[in-house]
Design a protein around this nucleic acid. Structure first.
Lengths: 232, 232
DNA sequence: CGTTGTGAACTCATTCACAGCT
DNA sequence: AGCTGTGAATGAGTTCACAACG
């Protein structure tokens, strides 16, 4: 009743599926001129059927009997992920994490350019980090238009995150990457992705506590051997 | 055939479910002496049925007509997540991200203690960060036993990550938090959680590119109104 | 009453298995 | 011969809906 089947090039993609596409893209750099679904599966830690299902949704990119052309596939992945063009972003909260993100080589390289820094701390305003001068957060709305930014990164403490998100939204930013451990409420049309490092740490404690005594292929990130899996 | 149904206190929990438990725990700090599933649902951005299903799996913690006792629930969540005791961890790769993690107040507070730093760069060895002296990575195996660490954090470049993971595993570490954008291969009994920041950034670009023109309650992190959802 | 706990229904995602190309 | 693309089968995860209970 919703919709029957868009069936075109790109139907709809779950979030998890989109994350896998990013991973396929990352692995493509390594392999040869063509890659088979089994190759990618091994690199990313999923089944080959999963790879074919994911890539099949992007259109007919593979050649039967051969595999996927790496160049064409990379272009298709980038297009689907929306990274076939540069993205301009600002960052609020110039702490250690912000510095780490700024120096993380690969962001600009991947098409993400941080063009403005904002902070509430008067001591930080006016200082320069990585060639950018920190501005007062109140200036955000005025500057966002000039800078033509679409994305905002939040690296402020949890109790200030919602306020910054509101300011981002008001400034016309349509995507927020949030490192504060809170659920952001955003108006329709503004999407937020939250990366909660504490959750990841707790996830690790959880997995270690209840890891199977010996489970070769249970965890995708921890597969030991890839011998024949089922008996048919 | 695997197992029928442990049915006891804690059956089995998917990874996503465990992440939600972390989020419930975080939200508990804020609310009053008791919290209803609807309260938690609102704070975390999931349905109330989801909350009840998740918490029901931990045992009978709720009181009908009242809700969940915050103190008891927090204790149960911590126990299930395996953070009802401290965890000792070492960190390999003392760059900006490492510094950010070290200064991230809340790690020690949440029971994660970083007790050793390792790096391959001779210029960094011997320097002190946050009260810890950076040691050569070759010392890892020898020191890990002394330090009685169980977890390791990888913040080295991608091409060195697998090597560090191998050294971690050899040193008896059973859980790895990996910030390098690669799939780690680990022996059975060693689990790895990978946090790939580039994937998150690309995820954001993806969501922004294909966000619905106006979708009030589509994204859990972006729900606008919570009026009656279905017509019954 | 209000809220939990939980079968049953349902939706979404993954795997199987093989026809169809190259 | 090899590998993709994809219906069909299976499985996992989520929501519905309501009886049970304080």
């Amino acid at each position: 009743m919703r919709k029957k089947k868009p069936a075109g090039a790109d139907a709809k993609l779950s979030r998890a599926a989109a994350q896998r596409l990013s991973q396929y893209l990352r692995c493509l750099a390594v392999v040869g001129p063509t890659a088979s679904s089994a190759d990618l599966a091994r690199s990313v830690g999923v089944s080959d059927a999963q790879v074919r299902r994911d890539l099949g949704a992007l259109g007919h990119l593979g050649q039967r009997g051969v595999g996927y052309d790496v160049t064409a596939l990379a272009a298709a992945l980038r297009k689907t992920l929306g990274i076939d063009r540069p993205w301009r972003a600002v960052l609020a909260g110039v702490g250690n994490l912000a510095r780490a993100l700024l120096r993380y080589r690969g962001f600009r390289q991947h098409g993400f350019e941080i063009v403005g820094l904002f902070d509430a701390d008067p001591a930080k305003i006016g200082t320069t980090v990585d060639g950018l001068t920190v501005e007062p957060i109140g200036r955000l709305a005025a500057r966002a238009t000039d800078l033509r930014v679409e994305l905002g990164v939040i690296t402020v403490p949890a109790d200030a995150a919602q306020e910054v998100a509101d300011q981002f939204s008001a400034a016309g930013i349509v995507g927020i990457l949030n490192f504060a451990p809170v659920l952001l409420r955003t108006p329709a049309g503004v999407v937020a992705v939250t990366v909660d490092l504490t959750v990841q740490f707790e996830q690790l404690a959880f997995l270690v506590t209840r890891r199977e005594p010996t489970a070769p292929e249970l965890r995708p990130s921890a597969r030991g051997g890839l011998e024949g899996r089922r008996s048919r």
